[in-house]
Design a protein around this nucleic acid. Structure first.
Lengths: 217, 217
DNA sequence: CAGTGTGAATCTCTTCACAGCT
DNA sequence: AGCTGTGAAGAGATTCACACTG
């Protein structure tokens, strides 16, 4: 397991981000009945350069047909395999506040293969409560549940001051990767992949770009 | 208005992203009682290189004191001014489903100066309903409300197939920038800044990096 | 003398341009 | 004829290294 037909050793971080976009657009094209698409047309739909797409795909293999383009369904499958999202990933969430509940309610994760199987919280008033069909479990039981339920991805939705402790529990329990929705930086060992999701960051970027446009007038 | 003391013409997109991180970390440092910090120490707390920080700040001015470092509160203020987030921004949300409600409930936006003043939806069953203190308004009234309420930022939380139409309404009404939480690409005129927030994208990246580590074993 | 601010060097990513398939 | 796959060129971002300042 874990074998991968990478043609190249290192893959740009930005490429991974774009592959997710390609999947999104390709799924829409598929649902609209498009069977084949050229890198040029896909590029337009994704607002990127067409050789960017060809290069991104070339990191993983040769998926196209010269003179023709890419078969949409085949390409979706290939990209998903390349990313390793062609299977179910077992996830847990730590912190059942507003944000945690919203994510549990959000159906997109499960439909894309990210199955949230366990919800943790350290608040005794919440423990035992049923949220979206899941019983809230005491955070101390992280170690047992991660191995019992084969949990791979931990989603942190605690308040910022408790995010580091949540991460520590998860790492100690043997989690394989972490997504941090709490607005604080956390430390994890180098071998644990970590992604930050920060809502405010996008608002700051937008505000800046709006001002920039205004200044140019 | 809109004048800005930029020392440099173009600023890397990545710099803007990091400035948001610096603010986050600096706010924590401030609350912990730190008054002065060197670029080296701030760099460690943000997991970046220290000359990266100095260069990022240099795009906007000279905020440090040689031989000393940066005064934390002063630096927070300077960065916020540079980004243009030292004032209130009027926002509206289009689409009052699960996600829209969760964002309305999420207090962080308002506390950071992004005030969601109006909630739109096109579903007649939702129009008139009060959600988190806001009356849901018919999407057709976008034009009137954007000017009346001086709305600047539009947040799209519709289902993917309705995101483009929501964007059209907003642009036509004179909105200045858009954040799209719907999992679909949208087209807007070049002069309208646009940010995508895609939850699944981070899960894909994480899955890929977990597999990569596994493959190296 | 500690630590900023910055030109120069390095590294990484993107785009071009075209050879090579189908 | 048309479009992919890819080396080479170009653009952009990061890091180094040190002159300069409080």
């Amino acid at each position: 397991m874990g074998r991968k037909s990478l043609k190249s050793e290192h893959i740009p971080k930005a490429t991974i981000g774009r592959l997710a976009v390609y999947i999104q657009v390709l799924e829409r094209l598929k649902s609209e009945g498009t069977d084949v698409i050229s890198s040029e047309n896909l590029a337009q739909a994704c607002s990127v350069n067409s050789s960017q797409i060809r290069k991104d795909l070339a990191y993983f293999g040769e998926f196209g047909v010269r003179g023709v383009g890419y078969y949409v369904q085949e390409l979706i499958t290939s990209i998903k395999q390349s990313l390793g999202v062609d299977r179910i990933w077992n996830c847990c969430i730590v912190g059942v506040g507003n944000l945690g509940r919203a994510l549990l309610r959000h159906g997109e994760f499960k439909s894309k293969g990210f199955n949230i199987k366990v919800a943790f919280d350290c608040d005794p008033y919440k423990i035992g409560e049923i949220v979206e069909g899941l019983e809230v479990i005491c955070t101390r039981k992280t170690r047992n549940l991660v191995s019992e339920q084969k949990l791979e991805i931990g989603i942190i939705t605690t308040p910022p001051e408790r995010a580091q402790r949540a991460a520590n529990y998860l790492v100690e329990a043997g989690i394989k990767g972490i997504i941090n929705y709490a607005p604080s930086r956390i430390d994890v060992p180098d071998h644990i992949p970590l992604e930050y999701v920060d809502f405010i960051h996008h608002f700051y970027a937008l505000a800046f770009h709006i001002n920039l446009g205004r200044a140019a007038e």
